[in-house]
Design a protein around this nucleic acid. Structure first.
Length: 623
DNA sequence: ATAGGGTTAG
């Protein structure tokens, strides 16, 4: 069965036969070495560990072992096979297994497990199951390792229900799943976004008397948080408390990070104090996460309080902590402080890394200091810190923002010469740069290079193309891109529709915009405040005041809160084409919502005041 | 099992 199976499987495996044949040559080399008096005993190599062994040497070693008499034990063979499996050379392992079979070396539970694992990794589940059948016939009971291998096979083959069933079966058979089993299955569930199934699985296992390890809880909490279900993860924390399992610092860190990411900063701070009361000591990660979050929300004094707190408790700030601070300060335009922090880092012998410099360069670019950004880039190179794609993207974007797109392109070439490959964002930046420069041909060219280099365009790429084309008045071309996008089956979100609707209105095709707007309902895409604002100002530009008013009412009835950008165009239209009374009412409503007249509304009112069509009370009402 | 930098409509 073994032979039939191996021969009937993919021809790719024969590639590795030649590998085995070559081992004859290497074997010869060993002979020569033996004559020259050097001892190359396979036992010595096995004992000294196979961690860093090269594939060729491992195959060579196998040849030695096969020839050696008395024959090495099966344990020694399985050590070698598992080392090759760790290199992910599953074909070679399977090939060697076949060799052993032909040489009459019988397999044992361990080697069978290795083969099952290899077949599973190669998504050849049926072959894995065939081996399972064979080994059971020979009287080897599958161990937990065997079952966990199969489990990962099911998970990678997207056969999630089979995977869950297998674990249940294991429990029925009296085989307690261990941490690896749990983690494998939970990982598989997450790969398929089955968040609640993952939680349910753990609960069921607990009921059946299994005790998941802290790492398993950690894997679960992390996966749930990464998918945005922080509330579910918090429930899990409470469940752990009920079961008197103390969540470790890692679990708290994960939850705190998730709360921060989803803007629940104060909940994150509450959880931080809660972990203290529970006796879990925060780590540098806890502090770095919170400090970064607080800085990003502009809560500088809270952040600095935490920083002194951690230093006082001798939890030393590390590169992450400093990078979080430097990044936030640089973005805020506090570049002096950012550079002072950089110096402080060096004073404390914490090495600035690529991220540190990238943040500094980004801050300088954001605040129109391109020359200083270039200097910083040169400094990092001089210090031996290698720029990566992100660093280049930041600087290329800096060039584009300063209308030096050709220089940005030059930098892109330089980065390619240094062996770095541009990614989607790199191309997005360049395409946007050329479009904003009004150079449609070059933008088109970059887009073509992107496609031919197999860099996948993202929704963002299309949005940039759409926006850029609409902006330079090439609505027709934009609509072609829009069609391509629809055909490609991408998720087209409301922001994309907003760009197209805006483009149509700008080109004076307000009716087309209205049609597209109406089609949103059929596609179950909800217009947002920007959609309404764009449509309302489009209608206003065509003097369609009644329709604009109707849409304004529809918007409020549908629960979309108007913004300053809703009121101002509407007020201007009423001032120009409508009556004073409704203008005054709109202004009152806007003021009661906390908005005020923008620059163009105020300048319009001043103009109308000047020609005597309005009185001064309007100007007072506006702000 | 946890934390950091880049493109983003009116």
């Amino acid at each position: 069965m073994w032979r039939v199976m191996v021969i009937s499987s993919t021809p790719k495996r024969f590639v590795h036969r030649s590998h085995l044949q070559r081992s004859g040559f290497y074997g010869f080399r060993c002979w020569i070495r033996a004559f020259s008096g050097r001892s190359d005993d396979y036992r010595e190599i096995l004992r000294s560990g196979l961690r860093d062994i090269k594939l060729d040497d491992a195959v060579d070693l196998f040849g030695e072992m096969a020839k050696s008499r008395p024959r090495p034990s099966i344990i020694e063979f399985s050590k070698l096979l598992s080392a090759i499996a760790k290199m992910k050379k599953y074909d070679v392992v399977i090939s060697l297994g076949e060799q052993m079979q032909m040489l009459g070396i019988p397999h044992d539970l361990y080697t069978y497990n290795i083969f099952i694992n290899c077949f599973c990794r190669r998504s050849e589940l049926s072959l894995a199951l065939a081996i399972l059948g064979k080994m059971m016939k020979l009287g080897f009971d599958p161990s937990i390792v065997t079952l966990t291998s199969l489990l990962s096979g099911y998970c990678h083959g997207k056969r999630i229900s089979d995977a869950v069933a297998l674990v249940d079966q294991m429990v029925e058979m009296g085989c307690k799943p261990d941490t690896v089993t749990f983690n494998t299955l939970i990982h598989g569930l997450f790969l398929n976004n089955k968040v609640s199934e993952a939680v349910a699985l753990l609960e069921r296992m607990v009921l059946k008397g299994c005790q998941p390890s802290l790492v398993t809880y950690g894997v679960l909490v992390n996966g749930i948080c990464k998918r945005g279900h922080t509330d579910l993860a918090l429930n899990l924390l409470r469940n752990m408390e009920e079961r008197k399992i103390e969540a470790g610092v890692v679990i708290y860190n994960t939850l705190i990070d998730s709360l921060c990411k989803y803007r629940h900063v104060d909940d994150a701070l509450d959880l931080f104090s809660e972990m203290e009361t529970k006796g879990v000591r925060p780590s540098v990660v806890t502090y770095s996460t919170l400090i970064s979050c607080l800085c990003n929300y502009g809560r500088w004094s809270d952040a600095s309080r935490l920083l002194s707190d951690m230093i006082e408790r001798r939890i030393n700030p590390d590169t992450f902590t400093f990078n979080a601070l430097i990044d936030a300060f640089a973005k805020e335009g506090k570049l002096l402080e950012a550079e002072r922090l950089y110096e402080e880092m060096i004073r404390r012998s914490i090495n600035p890394n690529t991220v540190t410099y990238s943040s500094l360069i980004n801050g300088l670019c954001m605040h129109d200091r391109l020359d200083d950004a270039i200097k910083m880039f040169d400094l990092m190179v001089r210090k031996g810190v290698l720029p990566d794609v992100v660093t280049y993207n930041i600087l290329i974007n800096g060039f584009c923002k300063c209308k030096k797109v050709d220089d940005g392109m030059e930098l892109f070439r330089e980065m390619s010469q240094r062996g770095l490959v541009g990614n989607t964002i790199t191309y997005n930046i360049l395409i946007q740069g050329f479009l904003q420069d009004g150079d449609y041909e070059k933008a088109q060219k970059v887009f073509e290079v992107m496609l031919s280099s197999d860099v996948p365009p993202s929704v963002m790429t299309y949005k940039i193309l759409l926006d850029g084309l609409c902006d330079i008045g090439k609505l027709e071309k934009a609509l072609v891109v829009f069609e391509d996008m629809q055909k490609s089956g991408m998720d087209i979100d409301i922001t994309t529709y907003n760009i197209v609707i805006h483009g149509m209105c700008k080109a004076g095709h307000v009716e087309d915009a209205q049609d597209l707007f109406c089609s949103l309902m059929r596609k179950a895409v909800h217009p947002d405040v920007v959609t309404y604002n764009t449509m309302i100002s489009g209608l206003c530009s065509k003097r369609l005041l009644d329709e604009a008013d109707a849409l304004f009412r529809e918007m409020k009835e549908g629960g979309t809160l108007p913004s300053s950008g809703t009121y101002n165009p509407l007020i201007r239209a009423h001032l120009k084409y409508g009556d004073k009374e409704s203008s005054a009412e709109l202004i009152k409503e806007m003021r009661s919502c906390g908005f005020s007249g923008d620059a163009s509304t105020i300048s319009l009112v001043i103009d109308l005041l000047y020609v005597g069509r309005l009185d001064k009370s309007f100007l007072d009402m506006l702000s």
